[in-house]
Nucleic acid binder design. Structure first.
Lengths: 244, 244
DNA sequence: CGTTCAGTTGACGCGGTTCAATCGAAGTGG
DNA sequence: CCACTTCGATTGAACCGCGTCAACTGAACG
């Protein structure tokens, strides 16, 4: 179960044996969250950070009249709640979209603690600060991509872009191959992420299928022509430079 | 000139005398950038971080066909290029919207250096790491607000929300009062920020004036009815908790 | 077997874009 | 000092991408 975390983090920067061992130990502190449940709500105080071992979640905000905007989709291997603030400056809640298994991971917090304190108790902590920092940059980049999608791309381009992003991210954790990847999202979730109506998401997906760019059977998605999709969406995968 | 930086940072967390002195010293390393010039381009390597002392800039990305999306607007007191990565994971460039004066500030980098190194050379550095971390969270929150605007708000709501945000931010650095604030942006910039066409930005601003919610004369903006604007836009100012 | 939930489809309307033209203010060069 | 240009703001008309409303389908479930 902790393999996804290993793959996710080692893609950012190589992991030492001590770190690898530390990640394997994550499997010992597991919690299961039901679909729809809140992993972390808006005004939460300091909360133990964790990794998603299985299932999908999202960060979102609700408007008073019920409109919802999803900021990011969280897949296995992704971190939750690593913002070390006592109370977050801006409100967003993290919600499970499927059944989710998380591993609590305060032990990885070395160098991430609040008030900028450098590791005090355990100098021998395997130092995940670099990984978490790189991970934060990666997420930040995904947010910028999202802003471009919402601000300047058509429904067709947006949807193609998202599918390419999810294909890249699932591949990173070893969950995508030539037979595609698994996307356990309803069209309502896609709509709230892409800033579209459910109906229009439905029609856009149909168009992608009609033009033989993708294939879908249930939650399984196959990108039939990744090159053309990439051109349509102006997609550029994140540039991970492990040399860092 | 460095007063805006002081106000900006001390709003996040009180500044020690040593830190204050350090900020005043920023005035010694000044550069001027012409409107339209690039402060920091996409693939730039490690670049010296800096603060904007006067003028406005933005972070943006261009699409192949010329469409532009602006991620964030940068005003005096804001930091530029504090991401400590050798090469950024995602591409965005920072461009001056007016004449901009920046102060280079590598001396504030204590605890921000690459590779997660904790301060080595100068333990006596006044430690701006906390401030820069809080500042990053603040910016992150502004990005989330922006995503909600673009994804789920109408042109009218979006524009109102932006004006409230800019009013709050200019007030934070002491540049807004009951006579309003100065917004040196063309409608084209507003359009590329709000994900709208120039024409529609023009009409939306007209509607805001017609409904006596704002007043504009040149770059000067007055919010005539901040309460109603706040309700319309569902605006919530960032919660700065200095107690952190 | 009724209920619920996700996906699908058609008709219609609106919010916002596009195209095109006008206008005033601010340069700029002869 | 006067054309001439440029740039940003403004306006009208036509168009269309996408939302809204409403109905229907099939699968899953108790």
């Amino acid at each position: 179960m902790t393999g996804v975390v290993f793959r996710r983090l080692s893609a950012l920067k190589p992991l030492s044996p001590a770190q690898t061992q530390c990640i394997e130990a994550l499997g010992e502190r597991i919690e299961t969250v039901a679909p729809g449940a809140t992993l972390r709500s808006e005004g939460d105080g300091p909360r133990r950070p964790s990794f998603i071992l299985s299932g999908w979640a999202c960060r979102q905000r609700l408007l008073p009249d019920g409109r919802r905007q999803i900021f990011s989709l969280l897949i296995p291997g992704d971190a939750v709640g690593f913002c070390a603030e006592p109370s977050p400056i801006t409100s967003a809640s993290t919600v499970a979209l499927t059944k989710v298994v998380v591993a609590t991971a305060e032990s990885l917090l070395g160098g991430m603690s609040a008030a900028g304190a450098y590791p005090t108790g355990g100098q021998d902590l395997p130092g995940f600060a670099d990984h978490m920092r790189l991970s934060a940059y990666l997420e930040d980049g995904l947010l910028l991509d999202h802003i471009v999608r919402l601000g300047r791309q058509t429904a067709f381009e947006r949807t193609a872009h998202l599918l390419l992003e999810l294909n890249w991210r699932t591949a990173l954790i070893g969950r995508a191959d030539e037979r595609g990847f698994n996307m356990p999202l309803t069209q309502e979730v896609l709509a709230d992420f892409l800033g579209l109506s459910i109906v229009h998401v439905n029609r856009t997906l149909q168009q992608l299928r009609r033009e033989r760019l993708i294939e879908m059977s249930g939650p399984q998605v196959v990108l039939l022509d990744a090159a053309q999709l990439t051109a349509i969406a102006d997609y550029q995968p994140p540039a991970l430079n492990k040399a860092s």
